[in-house]
């Protein structure tokens, strides 16, 4: 991997001020290379949405930096920010909410071009709209309809088409398939995979569905209470996770194979997510962790390399210890 496309360093996003701000994103660092897909998994409340919003500059960063193609996102403003938006686009979770119901498809698709004069000359809008619609599996006549006339899967295709209007290099997908039915979800996953190949897109793929993340990602990050607790190549993370939380997460996913029922080692975590306003001292996972010892309460573990699996970084004091449960 040479120069990364996106380089995030020590990025934090805190809400509220005073003694106990909610640390939605806390000191997060990662990179995405050109054409690479990085999966981000975590349960609700782990801060993945805040991270996405900060990267997209829909909310300010509290500290840290995020550099996309040489431009500092957290500090960009005015002209620079406007140009930055062209390189970085987003597919939102809810296809029913992310399209303005009062705008016809042709206007929805051409909105980014209206905002970035020079991207596509106005005379070619119609032609380009049709091209885009066809590239996401819709048809030319769909341009004259309103979002309410489409099914959920089709709307998400529209959302993807819009995200591609400015030919971005980084596509942030915020739970793009979790609102869709299984049979349609596969269509959209395949579409994203194809577009990524054709356009050499880098993707940050955020989802809570581990199976989908495994399918689309090259590398995966696991987030818990605002921290990245484990990251590494897909193979390492899924076949040899070292962090207890990742292990629990993997084992909790129900496998569509009834033969495995009762034979699989299931780690059922106790309790709920602690409040991000008042996270546990030391390791944030220790309150639900079966390996926790006194050191976990005192010292916060940093991301360190594992020898067992190549490329795996784990933030756990006991990652190398035998998995006893």
């Amino acid at each position: 991997m040479n120069q990364p496309l996106l380089k995030v360093q020590n990025l934090s996003r805190h809400f509220g001020s005073g003694a106990t701000p909610v640390r939605a994103v806390d000191d997060v660092s990662f990179e995405i290379a050109q054409g690479e897909t990085l999966g981000l998994v975590g349960e609700s409340g782990c801060g993945k949405t805040s991270l996405v919003r900060t990267l997209l500059k829909l909310g300010p960063a509290t500290s840290g930096s995020a550099v996309l193609d040489g431009v500092e996102i957290t500090k960009a403003s005015g002209r620079e920010l406007h140009e930055l938006r062209r390189k970085m686009q987003v597919v939102f979770q809810d296809p029913y909410q992310s399209l303005n119901p009062r705008m016809r498809v042709d206007r929805l698709i051409s909105e980014p071009w209206a905002l970035h004069p020079g991207a596509v000359p106005k005379a070619r809008w119609r032609e380009e709209t049709v091209k885009l619609l066809e590239s996401v599996g819709l048809r030319a006549e769909h341009a004259d309809r309103y979002p309410s006339e489409f099914s959920g899967g089709q709307r998400q295709r529209l959302g993807i088409a819009r995200a591609l209007t400015l030919d971005p290099t980084l596509l942030v997908c915020d739970e793009p398939v979790s609102a869709l039915d299984v049979s349609v979800q596969a269509q959209v996953v395949n579409l994203l995979a194809r577009l990524r190949r054709e356009r050499n897109l880098a993707m940050l793929f955020v989802a809570h569905d581990l199976a989908v993340v495994r399918h689309v990602s090259d590398r995966v990050m696991v987030m818990y209470l605002g921290k990245i607790i484990e990251t590494g190549p897909k193979q390492s993370i899924f076949s040899a996770p070292a962090h207890p939380y990742t292990q629990a997460l993997m084992s909790a996913v129900p496998t569509p194979d009834p033969r495995l029922r009762g034979h699989r080692k299931r780690i059922v975590l106790e309790g709920d997510l602690p409040s991000p306003a008042n996270p546990p001292s030391g390791c944030r996972f220790r309150t639900r962790c079966w390996k926790a010892t006194s050191i976990c309460a005192e010292q916060e573990p940093g991301l360190t390399a594992r020898t067992a699996a190549p490329g795996l970084l784990t933030a756990c004091h006991h990652a190398d210890a035998e998995t006893g449960h």
């Binding site: 997209l56 399209l99 303005n100 905002l115």
Partner: peptide, 22 residues
């Protein structure tokens, strides 16, 4: 607070644009 306003912002829409079009 609707998502499509966020979408417009992500495309680079300023306050005037968002007020006028959305």
């Amino acid at each position: 607070e609707r998502l499509f306003v966020d979408a417009a912002r992500a495309f680079g829409g300023g306050p005037t644009w968002i007020l006028r079009t959305h």
